[in-house]
Every structure is written in C-alpha cells, then in structure tokens.
Write a protein that binds this DNA or RNA. Structure first.
Length: 383
RNA sequence: GGGUCGGUGGCGGAGUGGUCAAUCGCACCUGACUGUAAAUCAGGCGACGUAAGUCUACGGGGGUUCAAAUCCCUCCCGGCCCA
C-alpha cells in the first residue's frame, strides 16, 4: 500500500510531516474542528476560511441519521453537500458507543455483531456494524475514515476494558476487510483511496494499550488513533498512557489523538509523537463564552511538568459572560486578526452573550479556532 | 364620597396562622465543558459568619395568638366599579 504520510522533520519524539489525501495535502501536526453533522456549529464556509481551517471531522452516526445517506449520495457525497473541498475525516460512530450507550445503557446495546442505538431524539432504533460504518464512510466520500470501535469509559474494570479491546480488534479486522471490498467494488484508485485508521483502546492499562496496538498493526492501517478519554475521572491528563501508546504505534504511521483536547494537552501529545487532533473544545466553549488568549507565547515548549502552572502557561482563558467585561472596551485579544478581534471590544462581545444572540457564539468559536490554528502553526515552526 | 380588589425579595409572581429567609420564572454572580443528545449544564443569589448559627424582613403603625407574609383595627398607596 502506498504511503500517504511522510515525516519531514523530527525533534526527539515530536515530528512534522505531510499527509496526502485525495482532497489535498496537509502538514502535520494539525487540528480538525468537529463538523459532526456536516457543519461546524454556527460557522460558515467563509468563517472557516478566514480562520484558516483546512481539514475537518464529520460523524458517520449523526450524518447517517440526519440527513441520511440517500440524500448525501444524491448530493454527490459529503464534500459536495457541505461545499467543502478540504480533507474530511469521518469518525465511525464509535464515540457514540461511549457517549450514548456506555454512559446510559437504555440508549442502546452492544453485541458482538452490531451496535443498536436508540436515538436520543426520536427513540428510533438504528444499528451500526463495522461493515456498515465503513460502507457509510465510503458513501460519504471522505478522505480519512476510522474503524468502528468499542469505546469504554476509563473507570470500567480492567476485565471490561479488556473485553472492549478484544471487540475493537475483531471489529477492526472486519472494517479492514470491508474497506478492501469497497475499494475493489468501487474501483477506487490508489491515489483516490481514503486513509483508514484503527483505534487503540485499553483505558489506563498500558499492557492492554500495547496489546491492542500490536494487534491493529498486525491488521495494518494507515494510521492509529488513541481511543477513549485521555483524561482520568478527575479530568487529569493521562500523560504516561498517551506517551506509551504513541510509542506502540509505528513511527511511519499517522498518530491520531481523537478528542484531544485542551491546548496544553495538544502540546504534550505532539511532543510524544501524535500528529492529528480534533476536539469540540474551541467551538463548544466559544459558544459558552470562554475565550482563549495567548499569554506567554514563547513558553509553548515548557516542560510537561510545568505546563499546568497557571503563571507559566502559554495561554489563558476568560469567560466573557463575567460581569467585569460589561464595560471593558479593550480588544478581546491583542494581536489576533480574527473577525472578532479586529472589529469588536470585550464589552461588545459581553453584550452579545448577555443578549443571547448567536453572533456572540459564532465570533467566539471562530476566534478560538483561530487560536488553535495558530497553536498548530507554532508547533510546526518550533520543531 | 361609597364600594371592591390589591400592595411580598432587583423585576414578574406564588404563598393566605406554625414545616417561610419565603415555590417558581427573569435578571444578576460564579463554575464546568475534551473522537458534540451541549447557543448546554451545575451552583449561588436579605445581612454578618468558613460553619453551626444569629439578626432584620412580606407598604407604615398598632393589636390578637405560644406562634402572623398569612387574622383584626387604622393609616398610606394603586387598580376597577358606583356616585
């Protein structure tokens, strides 16, 4: 299989590289905003363009439910439907196994063969199998796809996490087989083929992570993801697990830290050798009024044991809803060239949030994504 | 002038003898958010205190009662009706 990823520079574990997809090339490391249902909440194509977003993540389960695959096929695929020509990665629906079912067993059931979801909105039942997830992702026409996995909460017993690991491995083999079938029947050329990612599960247990990674590598994927939450039940970053799991993945493969994360988490993961990131934080927190600001930009490469030190941190956040911003006529962020910062004051943004107008969330989301884009650029420059 | 209904915390509005420092909503204050069931959720919101608790409070004043936002008298203020 042709390699779609090449490493350009390496600095200890961290590396910068270039990924080739049918929709274009992307330099690693990169961050993808979540366009779960085919849009980054509240942001237009122009907004995203101004921010400098290139690749994004869409979701198999959510798009399958709504608007449904018949419509997306009719639209000519998800790129065409969204009118987005940058690379798209689809998540498999595996995260919904965690967020919907593991967190609330009434929302569905996991069997060896399939996952049965009870829609949280309508209650309607829908099933996803590894094969179906892959087929949907081919119908979406994305550039990168992910194997359906069983994502257990980190506080499950080792026994249960081990069971999820074994199921994830078996499902990965089925996904790979289905992937090969789809490539064959759709007559997709090597240049046009989407990349396929396996996902390493194992909770906080290094032996399980290692075993899972080895088995997935045996099956063979373009890249490997870090599965499940990367923070423990107290929200603390699982440094050793992230570090070790990266080391279990072959150097020449892409390493995708799914759902990562806070800026400091991304910086750390990149230093362990992770290349790709996606997270709802910049957009969700933006909609909720939390704004990311640069502080000591030169401190980006802090040693990991100091990265959570508030004084030393390279960034800070403000909650624009706080009363103290009511009459703060300073710019939201000095030196940022996003739409929000070039035009508006903190007082104005506060007013937008107090008035509950969606414009506030939109400007804040775009600003936060700009912050993440700048962060990734800085990581590439520093290596 | 007569009658009648009402005056509750920043606002709206419950409560109509004890479990009321007073339901609830809004506003306000503060958190949380990590492969998006999230333009959401959680907590706080009379004063002092970390707290237990103490004090002052349901238009003003005066009563009844062991006990009053709740009952009685009176005054002030407002709505409506009749003159």
């Amino acid at each position: 299989m042709k390699r779609m990823f090449k490493i350009i520079r390496k600095n200890e574990k961290a590396r910068t590289g270039e990924l080739s997809t049918k929709s274009g090339k992307v330099k690693t490391p990169f961050f993808m905003p979540d366009a779960t249902r085919g849009f980054v909440k509240s942001l237009s194509k122009n907004d995203l363009g101004l921010v400098g977003v290139v690749p994004m993540v869409v979701n198999t389960y959510h798009l399958f439910l709504n608007p449904g695959m018949e419509l997306i096929r009719h639209a000519g695929g998800v790129h065409s439907f969204m009118h987005w020509d940058g690379p798209l990665l689809s998540d498999s629906g595996g995260y919904q196994v965690f967020s919907l079912i593991h967190k609330n067993p009434k929302r569905g059931k996991i069997t060896e063969d399939e996952v049965i979801f009870h829609s949280p909105i309508s209650g309607a039942r829908n099933t996803l199998t590894p094969e179906k997830s892959i087929e949907i992702q081919f119908d979406l026409g994305v550039d990168m796809m992910v194997c359906l996995d069983d994502v257990p909460p980190n506080d499950y017993s080792k026994e249960k996490i081990s069971a999820a690991v074994e199921r994830t491995i078996r499902w990965a083999a089925r996904c790979k087989a289905e992937y090969a079938r789809q490539i064959e029947t759709r007559k997709i050329s090597e240049e046009k083929r989407p990349l396929l990612f396996g996902v390493v599960q194992g909770g906080e247990y290094l032996d399980l992570r290692k075993h899972c990674a080895q088995e997935l590598v045996e099956i063979g994927f373009d890249g490997y993801g870090f599965g499940a939450r990367h923070v423990d039940s107290e929200g603390k970053f699982m440094e050793e697990v992230m570090r070790a799991t990266a080391s279990y993945i072959p150097e020449e493969s892409l390493r995708f830290a799914l759902g990562v994360g806070k800026p400091e988490d991304i910086v750390r993961c990149h230093s362990y050798g992770w290349d790709m990131f996606d997270c709802v934080i910049p957009t969700r927190e933006g909609r909720h009024g939390r704004i990311f600001l640069w502080k000591n930009k030169s401190n980006l490469k802090l040693k990991t044991d100091k990265i959570e030190d508030e004084e030393e941190s390279f960034y800070e956040t403000i909650n624009i809803n706080n009363g103290k911003f009511k009459d703060d006529f300073s710019p939201v962020s000095e030196g940022c060239d996003c739409e929000l910062c070039t035009n508006h004051t903190r007082a104005y943004l506060h007013h937008l949030f107090a008035s509950k107008d969606p414009l506030g969330g939109r400007l804040a989301s775009a600003h936060n994504l700009k912050f993440y884009t700048q962060l990734m650029k800085k990581l590439k420059e520093d290596d």
